[in-house]
């Protein structure tokens, strides 16, 4: 769901950049307070994995394909929506600047959608679902599915405000495609969380006994 340059007028792109910068500043403050040597390996590996997974488009029928976004995954395992903002911002910079995937003037909007909305939706969705179901995989799957669908709907709203997509067509099409793509988001997120839990449970935020987390 990387919005390209030319889909949003520059003045609106600047507004999204300003909002994104506020969250980037908060993500840097999170990193300053929370970044420990123990967390660095997981953060760096997640960045590499999210970059690679975002290049893997899988068909979802309807003549469309999609890939993991990764906001929910980053926020859930690192225990903060700002972890998603931190990682997704850097991944989006690499993608936009080097590979032309996602525009430069619209990068603020992409950071808001995938990093901020994806991260917050994924994190609090997981937290709420864990309280209700006590099941890590079910909670992660649904939270990740939402963290794909909701940012896509946000993009549809932004593109409607930009005059690029009619509101109704944009909401229906973006919603339908990302409801399907969200299944990939959910499955990959569940597999990745279980994989990390198997090899390094101490690295996963909610599995640490000391965490203020969602399990206890």
């Amino acid at each position: 769901m990387h919005i390209p340059d030319g889909f949003i007028p520059i003045p609106q792109g600047i507004v999204y950049w300003v909002i994104a910068l506020v969250f980037i500043a908060l993500a840097l403050r999170w990193a300053k307070n929370e970044m420990t040597d123990e967390k660095i390996p997981l953060i760096a590996v997640l960045a590499a994995a999210i970059f690679a997974l975002q290049s893997f488009n899988i068909p979802v029928s309807m003549g469309t394909s999609g890939h993991l976004v990764g906001g929910a995954l980053a926020a859930i395992v690192l225990g903060s929506p700002f972890a998603a903002v931190f990682i997704l911002t850097l991944v989006l910079i690499v993608q936009g600047v080097l590979f032309g995937d996602g525009g430069i003037t619209v990068m603020g909007a992409n950071i808001i959608n995938m990093g901020v909305i994806g991260g917050f939706g994924g994190f609090y969705g997981f937290k709420g679902l864990m309280a209700a179901t006590k099941n890590i995989s079910i909670s992660a799957f649904i939270a990740a599915w939402l963290a794909c669908l909701v940012p896509a709907l946000a993009a549809a709203v932004e593109l409607s405000l930009a005059g690029s997509f009619p509101f109704e067509v944009g909401m229906i099409a973006m919603g339908a495609y990302h409801a399907a793509i969200g299944i990939i988001e959910g499955l990959v997120t569940v597999i990745a969380i279980n994989l990390i839990l198997r090899v390094r449970p101490d690295m996963v935020d909610f599995s640490r006994p000391a965490a203020s987390g969602v399990v206890s």
């Binding site: 990387h2 919005i3 994995a49 290049s55 394909s65 999609g66 890939h67 099409a173």
Partner: peptide, 22 residues
Amino acid sequence: ALVIGVVAVFFASSDPDGLEST
């Protein structure tokens, strides 16, 4: 991550993504 990326080069779908399809 590298294995996923390399497999993606050969097997990723060339269909447009959700935003491009819209």
